[in-house]
Amino acid sequence: MMSHSINLDRSHTPQGPSDRFAHGLTRLLRFFADTLFAKHYAHRAVVLETVAAVPGMVGATLQHLKALRHISDDHGWIRTLMDEAENERMHLLTFIEIAKPTRFERWLIILAQGVFYNLFFLLYLISPRTAHRVVGYFEEEAVVSYTEFLAEVEAGNHENVPAPRRAIDYWHLPPDARLSDVIVAVRADEAGHRDVNHGFADHLSEQ
Rank of each mutant, 00 (worst) to 15 (best):
Leu29Asn: 00
Lys39Ile: 06
Gly24Thr: 11
Ser18Cys: 08
Arg69Gln: 14
Ala33Gln: 08
Ser18Ala: 15
Ala60Lys: 02
Asp74Glu: 08
Pro17Ile: 09
Gly16Tyr: 06
Leu68Ile: 10
Ser18Thr: 09
Asp34Ser: 08
Ser18Met: 11
Asp34Phe: 06
Gly24Cys: 03
Thr61His: 13
Asp19Ser: 14
Phe31Pro: 00
Phe21Asn: 02
Val51His: 05
Leu68Lys: 13
Val58Gln: 00
Thr26Val: 09
Val58Asp: 03
Phe37Asn: 02
Thr35Leu: 15
Gly16Ile: 04
Leu36Val: 11
His64Asp: 11
Thr61Asn: 09
Arg27Met: 06
Ala22Phe: 03
Leu68Arg: 14
Val54Ile: 15
Gly59Asn: 13
Arg27Trp: 08
Asp34Thr: 10
Ala53Arg: 15
Asp73Asn: 15
Gln15Gly: 00
Asp19Tyr: 14
Val58Phe: 05
Ala67Pro: 01
Ser11Asn: 14
Val54Ser: 05
Leu48Ala: 06
Pro14Glu: 04
Ala45Cys: 11
Arg20Gln: 15
Thr50Ile: 10
Ser11Thr: 13
His23Leu: 07
Leu29Tyr: 09
Val54Ala: 02
Leu29Ser: 00
Leu28Thr: 10
Pro55Lys: 03
His23Met: 06
His43Pro: 01
Phe37Pro: 01
Leu68Asn: 03
Ile71Met: 11
Asp73Glu: 05
Val47Leu: 13
Ala53Glu: 10
Pro17Glu: 03
Arg30Gly: 01
Arg10Phe: 15
Val51Ala: 13
Asp74Pro: 08
Asp73Thr: 03
His75Tyr: 09
Ala33Val: 08
Arg44Thr: 02
Thr61Val: 06
Thr50Ser: 14
His23Arg: 13
His40Asn: 14
Gly56Asn: 04
Val51Arg: 07
Ser72Lys: 12
Ala60Thr: 01
His23Cys: 07
Leu68Asp: 05
His43Arg: 15
Met57Arg: 14
His75Asn: 12
Ala67Tyr: 09
Leu48His: 04
Thr13Leu: 14
Phe21Val: 12
Ala33Ile: 06
Asp74Lys: 11
Asp34Glu: 12
Leu62Val: 03
Thr50Pro: 00
Phe32Thr: 10
Ser72Met: 10
Met57Asp: 09
Leu48Thr: 06
Arg69Pro: 02
Thr35Glu: 07
Phe37Ile: 01
Ser18Phe: 13
Ala67Leu: 09
Ala45His: 09
His40Asp: 12
His43Ile: 04
Thr26Asn: 11
His75Val: 05
Phe32Asp: 01
Lys39Gly: 00
Thr50Gly: 00
Leu48Asn: 06
His12Cys: 07
Ala60Trp: 07
Arg10Asn: 02
Gln15Cys: 05
Arg20Glu: 12
Ile71Val: 12
Val47Ala: 04
Lys66Cys: 02
Gln63Pro: 00
Thr50Tyr: 12
Arg10Glu: 11
Gly76Trp: 08
His12Arg: 12
Gly24Tyr: 06
Ala38His: 10
Ala53Gly: 11
Leu25Gly: 00
